[in-house]
Amino acid sequence: MTKTRSPASAARRLCRGAVLVALLVGACGEADRAQDGAAEPLTVFAAASLRDVMLEQAREYRRLGGRELEFNFAGSNVLALQLEASPGAADVFLSADSLWVEYLERAGLVRSESTVRFLSNQLVVVAATTSPLAFAELGALASADVRYLAIGHPEAVPAGRYARAALERVAVDSGPLWSQVEERIAPAADVRAVLALVEARDDTVGIVYRTDALSSTAVRSLLEIPGSSTPPIGYFAAVTRESEHIEAATELVEYLAGEEARPIFERHGFDVPVVPRG
């Protein structure tokens, strides 16, 4: 009597179904690409902290007659490694620090002559809006009330590297603040992940850009970290070496570094460098 199903045959059926679904999904992707019209959109790999402002800039850029922009938002480190793996995947790379642009310049994957510094930012310490935590100075982060300190991954994510640099520069009684809080660091994949963790726990503070603090109603800024205690926080734009739309990509970079883009950047809390960029 064999009417009962064996687990193995069920598993086989499951596998066959999965393969079919994968093929269908692949076919859909091909069809989408075939529909592309004349003025192809530019693909922009942009640091996660630029998300809100770049979506608005994209609308403005389109309104002014520029090309449509398609985005891939992630930590600058993730984007740089993705570009390394697939150099033609983007036309423009917007990095939240110089490190990852230089990384790609060394690899010959972005046009170094095109690289401009187009924005600055500042770090702030944030907590959930409802959190009772309050600080007068950075050194107070060593206090026991703070269970976790969420930052971008301190070796990879620009915001995390800046945060670490700032904490290393502050001296408390027994050495740099960094070594006091290191045990309580919760490294996150990017600044948006930091915000999510801070929003979820009242006893957790995070270090993010001022612009991120402004973008979330669920967190409030406790303390600004003065620009003098971090390395200069600069956003860099670069055209990729393998872009098929070099001219359009260069125009976009010029727009972002120019006067037309300034009001939107400033409204989101970014600092726009006044002096020649680069």
Binding site: Y148, I185, A186, P187, A188, A193, L197
Partner: peptide, 9 residues
């Protein structure tokens, strides 16, 4: 996991 528990070494 990474969303709720983070990635604390």
């Amino acid at each position: 996991t990474v969303t709720i528990a983070g990635s604390i070494p």
